[in-house]
Design a protein around this nucleic acid. Sequence first.
DNA 1: GTGGTCTAGACCACT
DNA 2: GTGGTCTAGACCACG
Lengths: 134, 134, 134, 134
Amino acid sequence: MIIQLDMQSDVPIYTQLMNQIVEGIAGGSLKPGEALPSVRSLASDIGVNLHTVNKAYTLLKQEGYIQIHRQKGVVVQPDGLPGLTPEFLAKQQEQLRPVIAESILRGMNLSDLLEQVKKLYEQISPSSGKESMP
Amino acid sequence: MIIQLDMQSDVPIYTQLMNQIVEGIAGGSLKPGEALPSVRSLASDIGVNLHTVNKAYTLLKQEGYIQIHRQKGVVVQPDGLPGLTPEFLAKQQEQLRPVIAESILRGMNLSDLLEQVKKLYEQISPSSGKESMP
Amino acid sequence: MIIQLDMQSDVPIYTQLMNQIVEGIAGGSLKPGEALPSVRSLASDIGVNLHTVNKAYTLLKQEGYIQIHRQKGVVVQPDGLPGLTPEFLAKQQEQLRPVIAESILRGMNLSDLLEQVKKLYEQISPSSGKESMP
Amino acid sequence: MIIQLDMQSDVPIYTQLMNQIVEGIAGGSLKPGEALPSVRSLASDIGVNLHTVNKAYTLLKQEGYIQIHRQKGVVVQPDGLPGLTPEFLAKQQEQLRPVIAESILRGMNLSDLLEQVKKLYEQISPSSGKESMP
DNA sequence: GTGGTCTAGACCACT
DNA sequence: GTGGTCTAGACCACG
């Protein structure tokens, strides 16, 4: 899995890292049970401090997206990923709301907006790509 | 216009302020040319620092959503709001992408996601929302 | 509030800190809404690194015991402390179980054990001590 | 005796092992003089490192709960288990204190807490709680 | 070699 | 001056 960070961004590095990993899991390139690189190796790979990677991993663990396994190291959650909890839906709304408001302000149609969302969804989702299982 | 701030949120106050004003404009409760409270009065109204309000106003002006005149005070952009520039669409994607990725990870359908977006759009948009304000 | 740390203990400093603060809240010496010292001042007071204090505060915030307020700094949760959630009861059992098992192994009576628990409860609890005189 | 380990837990494996064995002795499923599996066989049975089992056994021996003979292997302490030493009671208090404090903070009654402790005691204890009532 | 913890020192964003 | 983030380097517990 390739990690791309923007060191100039105002988005914290550990957040970018989390986003990339979440996207990897959502997109199927990281499968449940699969091992992630160790804190140290990932840190040196992408050229950041190990604490930064550690923070990303710790938060992902708290959200239930990965496990920190005593023997296998860090792995993508194998015991079923968290579902659509009310907390998540609330958080999702809070994140969506300002983006949608600004889109409306700029005169974007509902259908155009939905089209954008659909495009991104299919772009990230694994069912769009190459993984059609027999 | 009522401003609701969450002092415990991890979202900076000036950002919350911007979001609320943007939503006000998008929803039609703030109309182009309409005056906004002065930095001083708004700051004392909602109990935050002058600098905080100032920062929000300055950034909104930079985005072209409001105008700041030394004499007339602060008004919602009367000369046509900015449209769907490529820069905005790029920013929008960057904001949408992690939210959508996480929604996929949690097993949300595309149609359910679109439904959420539609719901929020109509909730914010003036055409469905009712303006019972004088 | 007096913080007592044992630097030789195998219990991490940030955990000791959390325990002391929890005990302070439970015992009534820290009241909801009351301000806690800033990360930096507490760190220098007790002679540890600010990151250590920060970790304790962050975890206490995640548990809902304190708030990190943008204006007031760090305060004891004023909006009602978390109650007896199933998660807490499960965690409590996992913590209690080995202690009780070892007590049984060492031949402690149930009544003696309950007496110990009662003694500690009343020792920590505010209603036992200085606030209500018999 | 069945050993159940949680590889994702933040509790070290050797500690989990110790807890399980202590609980086994306390509950009567492991009787004084009874043989425990060798380090090697237990390690391979539960799929952990030799060092891990060894550490658990060594610590249990230090506490006086088991004996390790070069020839006869590992046996549950046959010469009388350690009693309620002052050291143990002190350790017990240190373990109990934060749990009780957090329970108080969450608004748990003393009677409910005692009920929990009693429930766990009787659950672990072999005599099912009809023994030492004078 | 792994993650966990702690320290020291630095810059920045926010208020 | 506050908390948030990041870096660098170190030691330890664990397996």
